[in-house]
Nucleic acid binder design. Structure first.
Length: 152
DNA sequence: GCCAACGTTGGC
DNA sequence: GCCAACGTTGGC
Protein backbone atom coordinates (compact mmCIF):
# COMPACT_ATOMS: atom_id res chain seq x y z
CA UNK A 1 0.00 0.00 0.00
CA UNK A 2 1.24 3.45 -0.90
CA UNK A 3 0.57 6.82 0.63
CA UNK A 4 -0.14 10.10 -1.09
CA UNK A 5 -1.00 13.69 -0.42
CA UNK A 6 -3.45 15.54 -2.64
CA UNK A 7 -4.15 19.25 -2.51
CA UNK A 8 -7.50 20.83 -2.95
CA UNK A 9 -8.76 24.34 -2.50
CA UNK A 10 -11.51 24.14 0.12
CA UNK A 11 -13.42 26.95 -1.59
CA UNK A 12 -13.66 24.64 -4.60
CA UNK A 13 -13.84 21.19 -2.99
CA UNK A 14 -13.20 20.65 0.70
CA UNK A 15 -12.98 17.65 3.00
CA UNK A 16 -16.55 18.43 4.03
CA UNK A 17 -17.64 18.15 0.42
CA UNK A 18 -15.94 14.75 0.23
CA UNK A 19 -17.58 13.67 3.49
CA UNK A 20 -20.95 14.65 2.03
CA UNK A 21 -20.33 12.93 -1.32
CA UNK A 22 -18.73 9.81 0.13
CA UNK A 23 -16.57 9.45 -2.94
CA UNK A 24 -15.48 11.55 -5.86
CA UNK A 25 -13.35 11.50 -8.99
CA UNK A 26 -10.13 13.40 -8.33
CA UNK A 27 -10.32 15.36 -11.55
CA UNK A 28 -8.92 18.50 -13.13
CA UNK A 29 -5.24 17.93 -12.42
CA UNK A 30 -3.42 19.38 -15.41
CA UNK A 31 0.22 18.82 -14.65
CA UNK A 32 2.09 15.91 -16.15
CA UNK A 33 4.11 15.00 -13.11
CA UNK A 34 1.02 15.03 -10.91
CA UNK A 35 -0.89 13.08 -13.56
CA UNK A 36 1.73 10.37 -13.48
CA UNK A 37 1.36 10.08 -9.73
CA UNK A 38 -2.43 9.90 -10.08
CA UNK A 39 -2.01 7.00 -12.47
CA UNK A 40 0.11 5.14 -9.93
CA UNK A 41 -2.57 5.26 -7.26
CA UNK A 42 -3.94 1.82 -6.47
CA UNK A 43 -7.05 0.72 -4.63
CA UNK A 44 -6.61 0.93 -0.87
CA UNK A 45 -3.82 3.48 -1.10
CA UNK A 46 -4.26 6.19 1.49
CA UNK A 47 -4.52 9.82 0.51
CA UNK A 48 -4.03 12.74 2.85
CA UNK A 49 -6.28 15.58 1.83
CA UNK A 50 -4.59 18.96 2.07
CA UNK A 51 -6.35 22.31 1.92
CA UNK A 52 -4.36 24.79 -0.13
CA UNK A 53 -5.13 28.45 -0.62
CA UNK A 54 -6.87 28.25 2.70
CA UNK A 55 -6.66 30.13 5.96
CA UNK A 56 -4.70 28.41 7.28
CA UNK A 57 -3.47 25.87 4.75
CA UNK A 58 -3.01 22.35 6.13
CA UNK A 59 -4.07 18.74 6.39
CA UNK A 60 -7.80 18.30 6.59
CA UNK A 61 -8.56 14.60 6.27
CA UNK A 62 -7.92 11.16 4.89
CA UNK A 63 -9.28 9.38 1.86
CA UNK A 64 -8.72 6.02 0.22
CA UNK A 65 -8.35 5.14 -3.44
CA UNK A 66 -11.50 3.32 -4.54
CA UNK A 67 -10.95 3.17 -8.32
CA UNK A 68 -7.71 3.36 -10.27
CA UNK A 69 -6.57 5.26 -13.29
CA UNK A 70 -9.74 6.38 -15.06
CA UNK A 71 -9.93 8.86 -17.91
CA UNK A 72 -10.68 12.25 -16.39
CA UNK A 73 -14.12 13.13 -17.80
CA UNK A 74 -13.55 16.87 -17.48
CA UNK A 75 -11.12 16.80 -20.41
CA UNK A 76 -14.01 15.93 -22.77
CA UNK A 77 -16.41 18.60 -21.53
CA UNK A 78 -16.30 21.29 -24.19
CA UNK A 79 -18.13 23.77 -22.02
CA UNK A 80 -16.01 23.12 -18.97
CA UNK A 81 -12.99 24.88 -17.62
CA UNK A 82 -10.84 21.76 -17.96
CA UNK A 83 -11.64 20.88 -21.55
CA UNK A 84 -8.62 19.69 -23.49
CA UNK A 85 -9.04 19.82 -27.28
CA UNK A 86 -6.07 17.51 -27.75
CA UNK A 87 -7.64 14.71 -25.73
CA UNK A 88 -9.78 12.05 -27.36
CA UNK A 89 -11.80 9.16 -25.94
CA UNK A 90 -9.37 6.79 -27.63
CA UNK A 91 -6.35 8.66 -26.35
CA UNK A 92 -7.09 10.58 -23.19
CA UNK A 93 -4.36 12.83 -21.83
CA UNK A 94 -5.60 13.16 -18.27
CA UNK A 95 -6.47 10.54 -15.72
CA UNK A 96 -7.95 10.40 -12.27
CA UNK A 97 -8.57 7.97 -9.46
CA UNK A 98 -11.79 7.81 -7.52
CA UNK A 99 -11.31 8.41 -3.83
CA UNK A 100 -13.53 7.54 -0.89
CA UNK A 101 -13.90 9.57 2.24
CA UNK A 102 -12.28 7.94 5.27
CA UNK A 103 -12.18 10.62 7.93
CA UNK A 104 -11.93 14.26 8.68
CA UNK A 105 -9.13 15.14 11.07
CA UNK A 106 -10.42 16.36 14.43
CA UNK A 107 -8.48 19.56 13.82
CA UNK A 108 -6.78 20.89 10.75
CA UNK A 109 -3.01 20.33 10.99
CA UNK A 110 -1.62 23.58 9.72
CA UNK A 111 1.29 23.92 7.35
CA UNK A 112 3.07 25.88 10.07
CA UNK A 113 2.80 22.92 12.42
CA UNK A 114 4.04 20.51 9.78
CA UNK A 115 7.11 22.67 9.23
CA UNK A 116 7.99 22.54 12.92
CA UNK A 117 8.38 18.79 12.93
CA UNK A 118 11.79 17.29 12.35
CA UNK A 119 10.18 13.96 11.50
CA UNK A 120 8.78 15.55 8.36
CA UNK A 121 12.06 16.77 6.92
CA UNK A 122 12.19 15.76 3.29
CA UNK A 123 8.45 15.76 2.79
CA UNK A 124 7.89 17.10 -0.72
CA UNK A 125 5.09 19.31 0.47
CA UNK A 126 7.49 21.31 2.62
CA UNK A 127 10.09 21.92 -0.04
CA UNK A 128 10.41 25.42 -1.31
CA UNK A 129 8.56 26.01 -4.53
CA UNK A 130 6.78 22.68 -4.41
CA UNK A 131 3.58 23.26 -6.30
CA UNK A 132 2.72 19.70 -7.23
CA UNK A 133 -0.88 19.01 -6.36
CA UNK A 134 -0.32 15.27 -5.91
CA UNK A 135 2.75 13.91 -4.19
CA UNK A 136 3.87 10.54 -2.86
CA UNK A 137 4.39 10.34 0.90
CA UNK A 138 6.55 7.77 2.70
CA UNK A 139 4.96 5.45 5.22
CA UNK A 140 6.98 7.12 7.96
CA UNK A 141 5.87 10.60 6.96
CA UNK A 142 2.28 9.47 6.65
CA UNK A 143 2.24 8.06 10.16
CA UNK A 144 4.08 11.06 11.55
CA UNK A 145 1.37 13.30 10.13
CA UNK A 146 -1.36 11.13 11.60
CA UNK A 147 0.30 11.46 15.00
CA UNK A 148 0.18 15.22 14.64
CA UNK A 149 -3.50 15.07 13.90
CA UNK A 150 -4.35 13.54 17.24
CA UNK A 151 -5.78 16.14 19.52
CA UNK A 152 -3.54 16.57 22.52
C1' DG B 1 16.26 22.44 -29.14
C1' DC B 2 16.39 27.15 -27.26
C1' DC B 3 14.24 30.52 -24.72
C1' DA B 4 11.12 34.61 -24.11
C1' DA B 5 6.62 35.34 -22.97
C1' DC B 6 2.96 33.92 -20.63
C1' DG B 7 0.10 31.23 -17.28
C1' DT B 8 -0.48 28.90 -12.79
C1' DT B 9 0.18 27.65 -7.99
C1' DG B 10 -0.09 28.77 -3.51
C1' DG B 11 1.98 30.96 0.64
C1' DC B 12 1.97 35.24 2.59
C1' DG C 1 -3.10 41.51 -4.14
C1' DC C 2 1.80 40.35 -4.54
C1' DC C 3 5.17 37.59 -6.31
C1' DA C 4 8.57 33.56 -6.38
C1' DA C 5 8.89 29.45 -8.42
C1' DC C 6 7.70 26.88 -11.32
C1' DG C 7 5.38 24.74 -16.05
C1' DT C 8 3.79 25.41 -20.86
C1' DT C 9 3.67 27.34 -25.41
C1' DG C 10 5.23 28.65 -29.70
C1' DG C 11 8.35 31.23 -32.83
C1' DC C 12 12.64 30.62 -34.63
Amino acid sequence: MKYWLAKTEPDVYSIDDLARDGKTLWTAVRNYQARNFLREMKRKDRVLIYHSNAEPPGLAGIAEVSEEDMADPTQFDKAGEYYDPKATREQPRWFCPEVRFVKKLPELVSLDRLRLHKSLVGLLLLQKGSRLSVIPVSKEHFHAMLELSKVK
